[in-house]
Structure formats: C-alpha cells, structure tokens
C-alpha cells in the first residue's frame, strides 16, 4: 500500500537551461521527475488509459513550446500540474459529448492561456501530491469510518473500475456513489485541515 516512491531527479535551473539548449538528457530528467504526478492527475479525472496518455502527451507538448517562458525550476512542476488538469478536464468533458472539436477555442473559454504561473504556484492541490503528503493522506483515511474508508481505498486502488463496479463492491446503489464520494472527500479535507491546525 505505502510504497516508497523512488527519489526523483532534482530539477534545478541548470536542468531547465540545458533542456532549453537542446540537451535531451535534461528533458528526460524532467519527464522522469513529473511523469508519475501527471499520470495520477489525469487518471483521477476518470480518463481511460488511452485518453490519459493523450492528455499527458499534450501537457508535454505544451511544455516544449512554453519552457522558455517559464525557466524557473520551482514553477515547472506547478505549471505542468495546472496544464495536465486542464487537459484532463477538457478531455473528460469532451467524452460526454463526443464530437470533433479542436481545443483552443474551448481552452480560451475556460480561462486565460497559458495558465497564469503565479496562480499555479500557490495551488495547495500540488502540495498534496508529494510523497510525504500522500502518506499523511492515507493515515487520515485510516481514521475514517465506513463507507468512506473503503470507498477511498477502492477509488485509489481500482483505477479502471467504473462507478457501477465501485458502487457494487461497496454495496450501494450506483446513484449514491458520486454524492458519497464527495462527502468522503469533504470529510478528508476537514481532517487534513484539522491536522494542519494541530500539528
């Protein structure tokens, strides 16, 4: 359950400069550092493996065309995170109304593009995606009552299960899964905030 996430490569100013200068190894270091995070972010939007791969690919393509405007190594992670979330959200909405659409116009209506880096930087959602925060999150889940404990465990460990399957395994009607999940996540947020208040 609590696997030790291997040490990711450190991304510093030199890495960014090297990537901008055409150093493939530096780019590979970026990919190595952030692939796990981006994958979990887009998959959490309920995307299939193929759609998730597509959203992650788009995120890297956008970084490739924007890296020279970011430069700050501390901001690259938050920029990738924000961009991946946006791609995943566009794609999951698209899934509900299958039609040929090109994305930029939609992206415009969803907000300014590229994402304002300052806003991305202060995003508390990114902080929770660190390894030590993940362990803290799970410790909080373990203190929760049913059905939240089982629901969150299942939501996190059965990535390809649909709502009907998940609801079935929890013994609840399909229609209850979404609202229950929302309540459980609210409860989890409250627990985390309480922990922050009393460290």
């Amino acid at each position: 359950m609590f696997e030790v996430i291997p040490e990711a490569p450190v991304i510093d100013r030199q890495t960014i400069h090297a990537a901008l200068a055409g150093d493939q190894a530096a780019w590979d270091a970026l990919v190595g550092r952030f692939s796990g995070l981006l994958w979990s972010v887009v998959r959490a939007h309920g995307l299939s493996g193929a759609d998730a791969a597509d959203a992650v690919q788009g995120t890297w393509l956008r970084l490739l065309e924007s890296l020279h405007t970011i430069r700050d190594p501390d901001r690259v992670g938050s920029w990738l995170f924000t961009t991946a979330r946006r791609e995943a959200s566009l794609l999951s909405r698209r899934r509900r109304g299958e039609r040929l659409v090109a994305d930029p116009a939609d992206a415009e209506s969803a907000g300014p593009w590229p994402a304002p880096a300052g806003q991305a930087h202060s995003d508390p959602a990114l902080a929770v995606l660190r390894a030590d925060e993940g362990r803290r999150l799970w410790r909080a889940v373990e203190t929760m009552r049913e059905p939240c404990r089982s629901l969150l465990l299942l939501a996190a460990t059965a990535p390809d299960a649909g709502v009907r399957q998940l609801a079935g395994r929890l013994g609840m009607p399909s229609g209850s899964y979404g609202p229950t999940r929302r309540r459980c996540l609210n409860r989890l947020r409250t627990l985390l905030n309480a922990q922050e208040a009393t460290p």
Binding site: V41, L129, E133, L152, T157, R181, R182, L185, L188
Partner: peptide, 12 residues
C-alpha cells in the same frame, strides 16, 4: 476532489 484522488492514487 480530483487532486485528492490523484494524491491517494500516487501514494497507493
């Protein structure tokens, strides 16, 4: 919600 789920999944 999605980021919380993402964080749980990443850690799992």
């Amino acid at each position: 919600d999605e980021s919380l789920i993402a964080a749980l999944r990443l850690a799992a």
